[in-house]
C-alpha cells in the first residue's frame, strides 16, 4: 500500500516512526494502567471496574516494551540522522491528506455553530475545488454536488426521516 511510511521515506525511517509510536503508546498505556488501578472496586463483585482495563493496559505495556526492544536492536545508528529529512519529505508528498484533515477538522468544529447546510456547502466547495482539475465543467459539477449534498441531504433527513442534522446556534 502506497500510504505506508516505508514507500518513500525508507525502511529504517519507517521503523523509527513506529518506534516513536511505541514510545507514545507505552507512555499513554502506563498512565492509563495507573488510572485503572485507582478505580475503586465494589463489594458486590470479585473484579472491579478497573480490572479489565488494567489487564488490557498491562498486556499492552508488555507487548510495547518487547516491540521497542526489537525496534532499537534493528535500527542502525546512522538511520536516526536521516529521519528528520525523510519525515519532511513524507509530509510534503502527502500535502493533500493534510489539507483534507484540516478541512475536515474545521468542518466538524463549525458545523454546530453555523449548521449543517452552510458548513457542508462550504466544505464541499473548498475541498472539491482544491482537488479538482481547473476546468469549467469541474466547477459546475462542484457547485451542483455541493448544493445536492448540503441542502438536499438536509431536506431529505428533515422531511423524510425526521432526523434533524445540526441547525446551528
Amino acid at each position: 500500500m502506497n500510504s505506508r511510511v516505508s514507500d518513500e521515506t525508507g525502511k529504517e525511517s519507517g521503523e523509527i516512526a513506529r518506534l516513536i509510536s511505541y514510545v507514545v503508546l507505552i507512555a499513554t498505556s502506563g498512565g492509563l494502567f495507573w488510572e485503572a488501578m485507582t478505580i475503586p472496586t465494589s463489594r458486590f463483585e470479585v473484579l472491579g471496574a478497573g480490572a479489565f482495563p488494567a489487564l488490557v493496559y498491562g498486556c499492552l505495556i508488555l507487548l510495547l516494551a518487547s516491540a521497542i526492544a526489537t525496534s532499537v536492536r534493528r535500527i542502525p545508528a546512522s538511520a536516526y540522522a536521516r529521519f528528520a529529512e525523510d519525515f519532511q519529505t513524507w509530509i510534503k508528498t502527502r500535502r493533500l491528506v493534510f489539507v483534507l484533515f484540516v478541512c475536515l477538522g474545521l468542518y466538524l468544529a463549525v458545523m454546530p455553530v453555523i449548521g449543517y447546510p452552510i458548513a457542508t456547502f462550504v466544505f464541499l466547495v473548498v475541498l472539491q475545488f482544491w482537488f479538482a482539475p481547473k476546468t469549467r465543467s469541474a466547477a459546475v459539477t462542484v457547485l451542483i454536488l455541493a448544493i445536492v449534498f448540503s441542502v438536499g441531504l438536509n431536506w431529505l433527513f428533515d422531511e423524510v426521516f425526521n432526523v434533524f442534522l445540526p441547525r446551528g446556534s
Binding site: L100, F101, L104, G105, Y107, L108, A109, M111, P112, Y116, T120, F123, L124, L127, Q128, F131, A132, P133, A138, T141, L145, F149, L153, F157, F161, V163, F164, L165, P166
Partner: peptide, 29 residues
C-alpha cells in the same frame, strides 16, 4: 476528487444520525 469529499460528508451524517450527538463528530475526526 468527486467521491472522496462526498463520502466524507456521508460518513459525518451517518456518525451524527447514530445518536444525534455533536460530540460524536469530534470523536469521528
Amino acid at each position: 476528487w468527486v467521491i472522496v469529499p462526498i463520502v466524507l460528508v456521508c460518513c459525518v451524517v451517518g456518525a451524527f444520525a447514530l445518536n444525534n450527538r455533536v460530540t460524536d463528530l469530534y470523536l469521528l475526526g
